[in-house]
Design a protein around this nucleic acid. Structure first.
Lengths: 174, 174
DNA sequence: AATAACTTTCATTTTATTTTGAAAGTTTAA
DNA sequence: TTAAACTTTCAAAATAAAATGAAAGTTATT
């Protein structure tokens, strides 16, 4: 006899938060940040810091800092309600926008500093006929070229809307 | 009076290893893995585990595991020399290939499991008119569509060579 | 200006990730 | 088959990253 197991809402919710946390932490946003984002993503209504703390069982301090980070990354918005002191939070629900925001932030935080360091490194002093020196300069030059191109592609990609990009990629890859 | 400070080879080498380590750890390969890779990248000659340990001041065990991981990721090759017991290592120096390998591995390790989980989550049981239930299914459906498209793009991108991709992207983005 | 309703900070604790290195394992050669 | 030359393992230690929560800070209300 077969037993068909269908997930209940609560189980689905937990798995979703867990999965989004895992995905997030491997793609550059911290686990808790991604979990808070996940919770907000599946909330039909805005949530207060209090509610987030309770739901995810995290401390006040952690909730506060995480929410602040999410706002910095442009993934969550603060919302005020007339006549209430409390702040409420809402996630950006357009996943393409979320992806673009993350790319944008990581580009700024990670790629830009690397590019300027590489620029420095190309100027390293040394004997042009020394193999080691040449290998260093070659590696740097190479990396810079690839990073530059990737950076260029990402920069443009975030300026396109999803359908335009997908359409273009589809044609591109036949 | 101005002082122009030009980096010496050793300083450049250290900064490069450090930078590659930082970049690596934020893009999915561990810090030490990236540092060993960096060292090999700028080595004109193959290196033994012994030499890597000494140069980076890491333990034998760490060196061994890290090198093994790099080989698993397809970023480093083992090389044997006739008449020598010792193993030597050589990095993949084509950075575009390196990037492709990393994308390929991460796709396999991270995206594939997420896609199958999302597929599961769409089946979550519940009242179709319940707002929460609907929000969960909507979020999952949305994410799946974006992840699917990104996955498609990455899958194809790693099959193209660098020039083809760059050329295509260049046209694409005018 | 005192209180209440919240938000933010940060020293400490907890948890997770990396690294170490001694011991065990393996391979080659005499 | 023994020893030397190497490689691999893994429990324990070190380090790094994230979370806690009480206290301090802020803002609105009476």
């Amino acid at each position: 006899m077969y037993r068909i197991s269908i997930m209940k809402y609560n189980e689905g919710k937990d798995k979703f938060i867990q999965a989004w946390g895992t995905l997030g932490s491997s793609w550059g946003i911290s686990r808790t940040m991604a979990q808070v984002h996940a919770l907000l993503l599946i909330s039909p209504e805005v949530l207060s810091a209090e509610e987030i703390m309770e739901d995810l069982k995290i401390s006040r301090g952690n909730a506060n800092m995480t929410i602040r980070d999410l706002i910095d990354w442009g993934l969550v918005y603060k919302e005020l309600r007339a006549g209430e002191r409390k702040e409420f939070f809402r996630a950006e629900k357009d996943i393409w926008k979320v992806a673009k925001q993350i790319i944008k932030e990581r580009r700024k935080r990670e790629i830009e500093p690397i590019l300027s360091l590489l620029e420095e490194l190309k100027k390293v002093e040394g004997n042009k006929t020394d193999k080691k020196h040449k290998a260093l300069v070659d590696a740097v030059t190479n990396i810079e070229s690839v990073v530059d191109k990737a950076d260029f592609a990402l920069e443009r990609a975030v300026k396109l809307d999803e359908n335009a990009l997908v359409g273009a990629l589809f044609k591109l890859f036949k």
